[in-house]
Amino acid sequence: MWLATTFPNATIALDQTLVGGHTPLYHWQGQDPSAEAILISGHYDVVPIEGDWSRYPWAGEISDGFVWGRGVLDMKGGVVSLMEAVDRLAANGFQP
């Protein structure tokens, strides 16, 4: 899996569960089990090209106040930014 090989320190520090055989769900255990948890979420899936598209799915066309195209609402950059931060923190021995 790309996330695991790209962010090895995060992969070691976080517990991972695969949901549906494909979607990783990570848990980073904090030092204080009585402290409140936080949830950071993101997704990087892409809508498949199935059926008829009213616009060319690869264009990222801006029309009628919307961006039309495959994956325009995905959060790949956000997910990579989060994983990069966690990977660097884990590499330095940080535990929340």
Rank of each mutant, 00 (worst) to 15 (best):
W68N: 04
H43D: 03
R88C: 05
E36F: 01
D45E: 05
D87W: 00
M83L: 15
G78N: 07
D64S: 13
F94T: 08
G20Q: 10
G21Q: 06
W68Y: 14
A13T: 01
T6M: 03
S34W: 06
G65E: 10
A90L: 06
A10H: 04
G77D: 07
R70M: 03
I62Y: 08
M83R: 00
E36A: 13
E61C: 03
I38P: 00
P57D: 10
Q16V: 06
G65T: 10
L25G: 01
H43P: 02
G65A: 14
A85S: 14
E61G: 05
E61H: 11
G21R: 12
D52L: 11
I38F: 10
L39A: 09
L3Y: 11
P96K: 07
V79E: 02
R55A: 12
S41G: 03
L14I: 04
P96F: 11
W58K: 09
D52N: 14
V80T: 13
P8M: 12
D52C: 08
W2G: 01
Q31R: 15
E61F: 05
Y44W: 08
S34M: 08
T23H: 01
V72Y: 00
Y44D: 01
I62Q: 11
L3H: 13
G20V: 09
V46K: 02
M1G: 15
I49Y: 01
G21I: 12
S41T: 03
V46D: 01
F94V: 11
R88A: 12
V46A: 06
G30N: 08
I38Q: 05
V86L: 14
F66V: 04
S54N: 12
W53H: 04
W58G: 04
Q29S: 14
G21F: 09
P57S: 11
G42M: 02
A85E: 14
W53K: 10
E50H: 07
S54F: 08
T6L: 03
G51N: 12
G21E: 06
A35S: 15
V67Y: 07
F66K: 15
L39Q: 04
W28K: 09
A4G: 14
N9H: 14
Q31M: 12
G20C: 07
T5R: 14
D52G: 09
S34I: 07
L73T: 15
M75R: 03
W2C: 00
Q29C: 10
I40W: 07
